[in-house]
Nucleic acid binder design. Structure first.
Length: 451
DNA sequence: AGCACA
């Protein structure tokens, strides 16, 4: 045969090899399909798929050179080209004599995938989108994300290696569907390998890590501060001492935020004992007192940074107050002590609803709605979630907790209920999360609307 | 539509 050294890169005729190189394979191509393709011609002893920059190439290694020759010869003269799932596959002898290392450790995977998100906007991909994408293959237990020199990466933990493998096979090299991404984002490609991890350690629910098996996991302060909405030092202290009293400041107050609205919002986490509202620095602030620190912590974690109304209106910023017991001198439209029954006392502008005593009306079915983590995107079928706290977090599924609660709200007789608030308070808090999903066309609550 | 992996 002719001299090897002068061969062009792609030769029309190549020295036979028991290894065949295949190209133009479909994405879904599996090892099994390669075996099927080669089986008529001999014993396939090894394969390698997902090769090449587009991962649409593969190798088949036969036990015997003659078998490889038989396959090449057959398709060289066949009127029907070799096909995998109807897609024409091009065959030639490989320039290697054997497939090396087909089953590397990278191919015998575990239940945890290492996902690298490529693309200019990769780091803008939310953990919720990743969760959505990978949930298509099975229940995603945990996700952690991090940035390394390799870029934006995530570890995605499935219950078993099989599920992880199916996700890897289907998603590796694919782009995240654009409809799952914010419009302005460019393509984000997933590169997936197996991680050596088997069980990720997720200590907090945060913007970088999630444990979908544990809805009660505390929310990391970092998740709250992540949006830069609450930079570190109000008072210089890195960690504010927790308190049963929250200080709420309300940003972008396009709509009236009343005592009753606050009461309703904060009552979702436990009984609100007292509320005092006041103006400060031109904005509205309020102190909300719970009976215990824990409740306040939960409320703060869940509510921080979220908006009472859709559209970014009335965004809540929460910190711990130094108070532990508010002194409410008078019940009016700015302050109230809910622990004192029949406190209609001097009410210069009595709220319509002011007569009710302790307002420990039922909190939602779950104390922590977890709605923080509701993906903003439209959910097609989500995987079933392990706990009620997560199940309704996303999208269209009708929130369940609030309507019932609303009906029992002693402060809002049915007639005065702004319709917008009938939807699940707390149930939709994605990145632009709002406690009340629909922006009111008018202030949602107006004290002068008496019956 | 053109040769991987460690």
């Amino acid at each position: 045969m002719s001299s090897v050294s002068s061969q062009p890169q792609f030769r029309l005729t190549q020295p036979p090899s028991k290894v065949l190189h295949l190209r133009n394979l479909p994405w879904e191509c599996t090892e099994e399909e390669l075996v099927e393709l080669g089986k008529p011609f001999g014993k396939v002893v090894n394969t390698k798929c997902n090769v090449g920059p587009n991962r649409n190439q593969a190798f088949i290694e036969f036990a015997d050179l003659n078998q490889a020759i038989a396959m090449i010869s057959y398709y060289a003269s066949s009127s029907e080209p070799a096909q995998v799932r109807g897609k024409t596959v091009y065959l030639q002898y490989s320039n290697r004599q054997e497939i090396v290392n087909n089953k590397t450790t990278a191919d015998v995977g575990g239940n945890v995938l290492l996902v690298t998100i490529e693309g200019a906007d990769a780091r803008l991909v939310s953990i919720d989108v990743l969760h959505l994408v990978f949930s298509a293959f099975g229940f995603v237990h945990k996700i952690t994300t991090f940035e390394k020199t390799a870029g934006f990466q995530a570890l995605v933990q499935f219950s078993d290696a099989e599920t992880a493998s199916s996700a890897k096979n289907a998603l590796d090299g694919r782009n995240i569907p654009s409809y799952l991404l914010p419009e302005h984002l460019g393509p984000c490609t997933l590169r997936i390998t197996y991680s050596a991890h088997t069980d990720l350690s997720v200590k907090f629910q945060s913007h970088r890590s999630r444990d979908y098996t544990n809805a009660n996991l505390p929310v990391a302060p970092s998740a709250i501060d992540a949006n830069g909405m609450f930079s570190v030092g109000l008072d210089g202290k890195k960690l504010e001492p927790e308190s049963n009293v929250l200080l709420a400041s309300i940003e972008n107050m396009q709509y009236a935020v009343t005592l009753d609205v606050l009461h309703m919002v904060f009552s979702s986490f436990g009984p609100v004992q007292k509320i005092a509202m006041f103006d400060k620095n031109g904005g509205l602030q309020a102190l909300i007192q719970y009976p215990d620190v824990q409740t306040a912590v939960v409320a703060k974690e869940a509510l921080e940074g979220h908006c009472i109304y859709d559209g970014g209106f009335c965004k809540l910023h929460l910190s711990y107050s130094r108070h532990s017991d508010l002194s409410i001198k008078v019940n009016n439209d700015r302050s109230r002590d809910y622990t004192i029954p029949n406190t209609v006392m001097m009410n210069p502008q009595p709220s319509i609803l002011g007569q009710q005593p302790v307002a420990t009306h039922g909190p939602p079915a779950h104390p922590y709605p977890g709605a923080h983590f509701a993906p903003t995107t439209e959910h097609h079928q989500m995987m079933p979630q392990p706990s009620a706290g997560w199940a309704t977090g996303g999208g269209p599924p009708v929130p369940h907790s609030m309507p019932a609660q609303m009906n029992h709200n002693p402060y809002l007789p049915p007639g005065t209920m702004p319709p917008q608030m009938g939807h699940g308070i707390m149930m939709q808090m994605p990145s632009h999360g709002d406690l009340l999903p629909h922006a009111p066309a008018m202030p949602p609550y107006r004290p002068d609307h008496r019956q």
